[in-house]
């Protein structure tokens, strides 16, 4: 009986909050770390006025433009080639399967920087390129930094995108192909109208990741004289020795580009999630 009244007494008590001591402790530690780093940058050998001064100079802005142009072009090339490779990988015929498999193996297995250098120095293997009906050219003249970077980055990217799309296509139920066939669609139309839109749902988040990676990867093209933002920042600091300041300028623009991308990805995800149960 006393037990019962004792328990009933508890009913009247108000609810309080627990205190998350672990979170508070780790928060304090993290905050201290941030303050220390910011302090280090603030009092260190960084002339912040130079950062502000160079943030919008024409050469840097041209570099940002070149970075974005390369990222978009290389990604587009990677998408087209990647989708073709994914279709080849899933083909019922053995030849496209093997070719796609070999491609992915090769391009994923060799460092990107090495691929860029090979494209840039292609003239050493093929001194001349003959385009039927157009003429013969020296490879050195054809393989500009832009084209070398585009092939190097885009064709490497294709190997990764192929794997992403392969998973995307495989995530679509077999019954969808059959239903599309049953209403008289050709394979191509079924792909375009039924399979692609559904595969896109699963593919957009990893593709967004790849695009963000691509924006940063373009910095490698500075090594083959492509005038992207890091390359131009370097050119400036070779002259004025403000190394850290100009690296911060370049870093700011990469961050800005990547940040601007997230809402875009969100929009695409929304567009393609039509009909998804939620």
């Amino acid at each position: 009986m006393t037990r019962m009244t004792e328990s009933s007494r508890l009913l009247a008590l108000p609810r309080g909050r627990g205190i998350a001591w672990t979170q508070i402790a780790s928060g304090v530690v993290l905050l201290a770390l941030c303050v220390w780093i910011i302090h280090a940058f603030a009092v260190g050998q960084i002339e912040w006025r130079y950062v502000g001064q160079f943030l919008f100079v024409p050469s840097i802005l041209r570099g940002v433009g070149a970075t974005l142009l390369m990222a978009v072009c290389a990604m587009a090339l990677g998408m087209v080639a990647g989708i073709v490779l994914a279709l080849g990988r899933l083909s019922t015929a053995w030849l496209p399967r093997i070719v796609s498999g070999l491609y992915v193996w090769l391009f994923r297995g060799v460092p990107v920087i090495l691929q860029l250098l090979i494209w840039f120095n292609l003239a050493l293997i093929f001194p001349h390129v003959t385009l039927p009906g157009i003429g013969s050219y020296r490879t050195v003249d054809l393989m500009t930094p832009f084209l070398s970077a585009l092939f190097g980055l885009g064709l490497n990217q294709a190997a990764y995108i192929a794997e992403i799309f392969r998973a995307g296509f495989q995530s679509v139920d077999r019954g969808q192909y059959e239903a599309a066939s049953a209403i008289g669609m050709t394979r191509l139309m079924a792909m375009r109208r039924i399979i692609f839109p559904q595969a896109f749902r699963t593919v957009i988040p990893p593709l967004g990741n790849e695009f963000i990676n691509m924006i940063k990867l373009t910095s490698l093209a500075s090594l083959i004289q492509y005038p992207e933002v890091l390359h131009n920042a370097e050119t400036i600091y070779y002259a004025n020795t403000r190394v850290i300041e100009l690296l911060i300028v370049a870093g700011f623009w990469y961050l800005a580009a990547v940040t601007a991308l997230s809402p875009l990805q969100h929009l695409l995800e929304r567009r393609f999630s039509r009909g998804k149960s939620s």
Partner: peptide
């Protein structure tokens, strides 16, 4: 040809055990 077979498939309407509606369309 694949094209001709696609046309012939329209001669019959098919209803599947698992419906197989296109989920991205109303």
């Amino acid at each position: 040809s694949a094209h001709d077979i696609a046309r012939q498939r329209r001669l019959a309407g098919m209803v599947f055990q698992r419906f197989n509606l296109f989920p991205h369309m109303t």
